[in-house]
Design a protein around this nucleic acid. Structure first.
Length: 477
RNA sequence: GGGGCCGUAGGGUAGCCUGGUUAUCCUCCCGGCUUUGGGAGCCGGUGACCCGAGUUCAAAUCUCGGCGGCCCCA
């Protein structure tokens, strides 16, 4: 039994363990173990991410350890990370001359090598990505998949371009890519331009994807940074132009971590456990035979036929002929989010029908064995995802509201979710909002999603009355 | 950054204050019987005092340190 999803924090903590996604008992704070079932979800989700990036990026691998001398080169960058870097200080018993950092992110590992790779304009654009672990010495409350000391699944892409505009074009491409990814997972998001005080250390600006968790707090599930030529100047990454002179490259980087899986679980799950979209479910279909004494043979026979048929279509299917009673099996596979369940009992064995049930709906219905075709299943899977998407959007909508009073805003973000306000660009006004509303300024809303009602993109700043832009405020993870 | 609480089988717990028998109960797990259309029942079984030091005739229990976890405030 899970706690109700209304107690979201408890629910999340329990569902991750009971659905066998992670083992949280590893004896180091902020590090957790991926269990086989959870790791399969991870593989399926990340193979989609790979598929999207492989369209025009190359996958690479850079080392985990970064010398202190490189990590410290970019002033803003190191200031942003220095209090949360893990250091390797010894080789065996010998202290190292130059300490080695466990990468908190890989800019300073990659860019000295980019300098060697990039010689001419013909080498540009350079677009690479890697999926690696990164380390941050988090001092706040750690949480599986959400706040980690070892991020195990950081997909980071890094690109280099000829000028600011071409890099900016890449930022737009990356945003498009991430939209496609989260649409695939049926996870709704808002896209913000982070305020200057909250951008990536060393970036020109940062675009971030936030989703709204069931308790109303937002979770940052993706970021896209325009680095301009800041790092290029630090690491001396120049190229020869067609005219023969030399210019610094302009760069971008963008990342997604296993927080995407935290979002997937949290947005779709219910009181009974996970609900997974068909494409990323480790088990897509479970067959439950209902065995009565003396009638087992026919039931097992039909179940096996069905199993082979579905296997033949290429699906991940499980025939659960274990010794438990049917009810116990229903609960077990519902907990694990299996999107489709087929039941075969003595009645079906006689009639040649199969009972079908979808994870997100309570009802059951019968279909003829012969009606279960690949096309039918694809259609069911598509409809299931559509329902998940609509439900998630309805929930997101109910958690977003516009305010022109700071008191009402504070009340809303404490109890419900994201408040939208008009806010100017000044740091003072932003700080006042954060203090009075007891939340974080997420930044200017880049665009209003098509599922959300229209809001005025511009208006008087809620604090100073100056020119303000539509801005999100929320409590964050 | 400041403060508080906690650590007993795989999970959840009683016992600790007031040191002393074979460490309680539920669940999970294993074996058997029986049962199977929404978490069945009966019988039997395996499995634990976080680590280290100290006090003591004797430590799950008291003291100190370490490691780990939870909560509140900034």
């Amino acid at each position: 039994m899970l706690p109700p999803k209304q107690n979201f924090s408890e629910w999340f903590h329990e569902v991750i363990q009971q659905a066998e996604i992670m083992d949280i008992r590893y004896p180091v704070k902020g590090l957790y173990v991926w269990r086989p079932f959870g790791f399969k979800i991870r593989q399926l989700v990340y193979s989609k991410l790979r598929e999207l990036l492989d369209r025009d990026h190359d996958e690479v691998y850079f080392p985990t350890l970064i010398p202190e001398t490189e990590l410290g080169k970019e002033g803003e960058h190191i200031k942003g990370f220095e209090d949360e870097v893990f250091w390797v200080t010894h080789g065996g018993l010998e202290p190292l001359d130059v300490k080695l950092a466990l990468r908190p992110t890989s800019e300073t590992a990659m860019y000295p090598i980019f300098k060697l790779w990039i010689r001419s304009h013909a080498d540009l654009p350079l677009k690479v990505y890697q999926i690696v672990n990164t380390f941050r010495y988090e001092t706040k409350h750690t949480r599986p998949l959400i706040r980690l000391r070892e991020i195990t699944s950081f997909k980071e892409a890094h690109t280099a371009h000829r000028n600011y505009e071409e890099a900016e074009q890449q930022v737009r491409e990356a945003v498009k890519l991430y939209k496609e990814f989260y649409d695939f997972l049926a996870v709704p998001y808002l896209v913000f331009r982070r305020p200057d005080w909250d951008k990536f250390p060393g970036a020109d600006y940062t675009i971030a994807f936030d989703t709204i968790m069931p308790d109303g707090r937002t979770l940052q599930i993706g970021t896209v940074h325009h680095l301009a030529d800041n790092f290029a100047k630090t690491f001396d990454i120049k190229y020869e132009t067609p005219k023969g002179d030399h210019a610094y490259v302009h760069q971008t980087c963008y990342g997604i971590s296993e927080r995407c899986i935290a979002a997937l679980i949290s947005i779709h799950g219910d009181d009974l456990g996970l609900i997974l979209p068909f494409e990323v479910a480790p088990i897509q279909i479970v067959i439950i035979p209902i065995l009565y004494k003396g009638k087992e043979e026919k039931v097992i026979g039909l179940s096996k036929n069905l199993f082979e048929r579905l296997k033949g279509f290429g699906y991940r299917v499980l025939l659960d002929d274990s010794d438990e009673r049917p009810g116990a099996k229903y609960y077990k596979w519902e907990l694990k989010g299996v999107p489709m369940r087929f039941e075969v009992g003595p009645k079906e064995a006689e009639s040649g029908k199969v009972v079908v049930s979808f994870r997100d709906e309570k009802k059951k219905f019968e279909v003829d064995f012969d009606e279960i075709t690949k096309e039918k299943i694809e259609e069911w899977a598509k409809n299931l995802k559509e329902r998940l998407k609509n439900k998630a959007i309805e929930s997101a909508k109910s958690k977003i509201k516009f305010f022109d009073s700071l008191e009402e805003l504070a009340d809303w973000i404490e109890k419900r979710g994201v408040g939208l306000i008009h806010l100017c660009n000044s740091t003072e006004c932003g700080e006042e909002v954060e203090e009075k509303a007891k939340g974080s300024v997420l930044g200017r809303l880049e665009e209003i999603p098509e599922w959300l009602e229209e809001f005025e993109p511009k208006g008087a700043c809620i604090v100073c009355g100056g020119e303000g832009y539509l801005t999100g405020v929320a409590r964050t993870y």
